[in-house]
C-alpha cells in the first residue's frame, strides 16, 4: 500500500550558508499509512517540530523529499497548495493565531481559502464547531472574549473545518489542565474515527502518547531513534531517559521494580497493564 505520507532522506538545515548553520533534520526516512495514529516524541530541539512542518509543505527540505500518496509534494505549486489542505497542521499554542471578528469567521478562514462555496463553508464551520464542542451561541462571539481552553478549541476547529485527511498537531495539550487535556485527546481520537483518518501528533506527555497512539516515533538529534508500538518503545526505558525523555511514571516504577529484583514486565505504561503485569509475577499477593 502506498503510504499517505512518506519522507525520503529528508534533511533540513537552518541558516544555510551562514556561521549559524545547523542541521535540524538529518536524512530521515519515515512513512505513515492511512489510518495510523502516531505520536512523535523527543526533547526540545530534537528536530521533531521542524520535521512535521515539512509534511504539509510549509518548509522545503534542504535535500530529500516528502511524498503525499507517492507524489512529491513540491512537484508543482498547485499540488503543494492542495497538500496544504489535505494535511492539516495545528501549531503549538494555536489560540494565538485567531484574528477574525467572530468565531464563525475564524473557523471559516481555512475553508474559504480552499475556495469552497458559501453553503459548503457554512456546513463545515458548523460541523467543526460542533465537533470540538463549541455551541451555536459561541459562533457569533469574538474569539478574544473566550477562555483559554475555548480559544484553543476554536483554533482546532479552524483546522478540522478543512477536513484534512491527515491531521498533524504540535503539542496540542500544552498548558491545559488535566480536564482540558482529556477532552482534547478525546476530540482528536474522534477525528481519527477508528482509522478513517490519519493523525500524527507531537507530545511531551508520555502518558498521552502511551494512552492513545498505536505507534510512537522518537526523535533525537534530528534522527528517528526509535519507531514502534508503545510497548516496544517503552521497553527501552533507559535509552529514552538518556535521550532526555521522561518515561511514563508507571514504566519508571516497573523499571525500578526490575532493578530491585522483581521479575516484572517493564514495557508496560498504563495502570491496567501494570496490574496485569503484577498479577503475572505472583498470581496472588498479600491480600488482606
Amino acid at each position: 500500500m502506498t503510504p499517505v505520507l512518506q519522507t525520503v532522506r529528508l534533511t533540513h538545515r537552518y541558516s544555510e550558508g551562514t556561521p549559524f548553520e545547523r542541521v535540524a533534520v538529518d536524512s530521515v526516512d519515515f512513512s505513515a499509512q492511512r489510518g495510523e495514529f502516531i505520536a512523535v516524541i523527543g526533547h526540545t530541539g530534537s528536530g521533531k517540530s521542524t520535521f512535521i512542518q515539512h509534511l504539509n509543505g510549509l518548509l522545503k527540505p534542504s535535500s530529500g523529499s516528502v511524498l503525499f500518496d507517492g507524489k512529491d509534494i513540491h512537484s508543482s505549486k498547485e499540488f503543494t497548495r492542495q497538500v496544504r489542505f489535505r494535511v492539516g497542521l495545528l501549531f503549538q499554542y494555536p489560540e494565538y493565531q485567531l484574528f477574525e471578528e467572530t468565531v464563525y469567521r475564524d473557523i471559516a478562514f481555512g475553508p474559504k481559502n480552499m475556495k469552497l462555496k458559501d453553503d459548503e463553508v457554512d456546513e463545515r464551520v458548523r460541523e467543526a464547531a460542533g465537533f470540538v464542542g463549541l455551541g451555536e451561541e459561541i459562533l457569533g462571539k469574538s474569539p478574544f472574549d473566550l477562555s483559554g481552553g475555548q480559544k484553543r478549541r476554536v483554533a482546532i476547529a479552524g483546522v478540522i473545518a478543512m477536513r484534512p485527511e491527515v491531521l498533524i498537531l504540535d503539542e496540542p495539550t500544552a498548558g491545559l489542565d488535566p480536564g482540558g487535556r482529556e477532552e482534547l485527546m478525546e476530540n482528536i481520537l474522534r477525528y481519527h474515527d477508528g482509522g478513517k483518518r490519519t493523525v500524527i501528533y507531537i507530545t511531551h506527555s508520555m502518558e498521552d502518547a502511551a494512552r492513545t497512539a498505536q505507534r510512537i516515533v522518537v526523535f533525537n538529534h534530528g534522527h528517528i531513534a526509535m519507531d514502534g508500538t508503545p510497548r516496544e518503545v517503552f521497553r527501552r526505558g533507559f535509552e529514552l531517559i538518556q535521550m532526555g525523555i521522561i518515561v511514563p511514571q508507571i514504566t519508571r516504577v516497573m523499571m525500578r521494580l526490575r532493578e530491585l529484583g522483581l521479575d516484572v514486565d517493564d514495557s508496560v505504561y498504563s495502570v491496567d497493564q501494570a496490574i496485569a503485569a503484577l498479577r503475572e509475577t505472583k498470581g496472588g499477593g498479600d491480600r488482606a
Partner: peptide, 30 residues
C-alpha cells in the same frame, strides 16, 4: 495503580507518592 490494587483487596500505602516509595511498596506486596 495502588488505589486500583487496593480495591482488589491489597493494602498498599497510598501515601507512598514517589516512584521509589511506590516501587518499594509494590515490592513488599508482590
Amino acid at each position: 495503580l495502588m488505589y486500583a490494587l487496593n480495591r482488589e483487596g491489597y493494602q498498599l500505602p497510598l501515601e507512598a507518592i514517589t516512584t521509589e516509595e511506590c516501587a518499594q511498596a509494590l515490592l513488599r506486596a508482590f
